[in-house]
């Protein structure tokens, strides 16, 4: 039988750095979309807490416990990252495996916010987008999810098929910011 080698979405593309910004690929582990059945939002939050020690995230928020993270991921659904969901959750929500479907990168550094400001209309100021805030938004014309994971660090997700475009646009923005220092 053929031996298949798993490749990450950004294999051969990352890491890159320019100026005071670095982009690295993130291996998120398992990712599962969790969409509560009608009227099950409350019982799902309890089930999530019992199963993974994390409740349902409010819009625009993430909850973190150890290496497990749950992101608000849009209208009436969330994304569980870093662990496979316990089967008990299926009584309250539709569970959809999203592993391998997304490219996940971390943009980090003193000028990371200036780079992102060239690519997304999202308001990234501290007062609006604090650490652990998350948003679904536009990133260089792509559907994206952006999560702030540190004072100068943001994780960005786009569909896996767009990984090369993501890295290309980040690279151009990084060089533009660096050139104007």
């Amino acid at each position: 039988m053929a031996e298949l080698t798993a490749k990450t979405p950004c294999a051969g593309l990352l890491p890159i750095s320019a100026g005071r910004v670095t982009v690295t690929e993130v291996d998120p582990g398992p990712m599962t979309a969790i969409a509560p059945f009608k009227g099950k939002e409350k019982t799902l939050a309890g089930a999530l807490d019992r199963a993974h020690g994390l409740g349902g995230p409010a819009p625009g928020q993430t909850r973190v416990k150890g290496h497990v993270r749950i992101l608000w991921f849009g209208h009436a659904h969330a994304l569980l990252v870093g662990v496979a969901p316990k089967p008990t959750l299926a009584r309250h929500a539709a569970l959809t495996d999203q592993g391998d479907a997304w490219a996940v990168v971390q943009v980090e550094g003193a000028e990371a916010r200036d780079v992102l400001a060239r690519l997304t209309p999202l308001d990234l100021r501290d007062a609006v987008f604090a650490v652990d805030a998350t948003a679904r938004t536009e990133l260089a014309h792509m559907q994206a999810a952006i999560t702030r994971v540190g004072a100068q660090a943001w994780q960005m997700m786009v569909f896996r098929s767009m990984a090369t475009t993501l890295v290309h646009d980040l690279d151009a923005a990084m060089r533009g910011v660096a050139a104007r220092r």
Binding site: G74, H75, R136, T137, E138, Q143
Partner: peptide, 8 residues
């Protein structure tokens, strides 16, 4: 349609 956002 908030297609490049929450999807609502």
């Amino acid at each position: 349609f908030h297609g490049l956002g929450c999807g609502a």
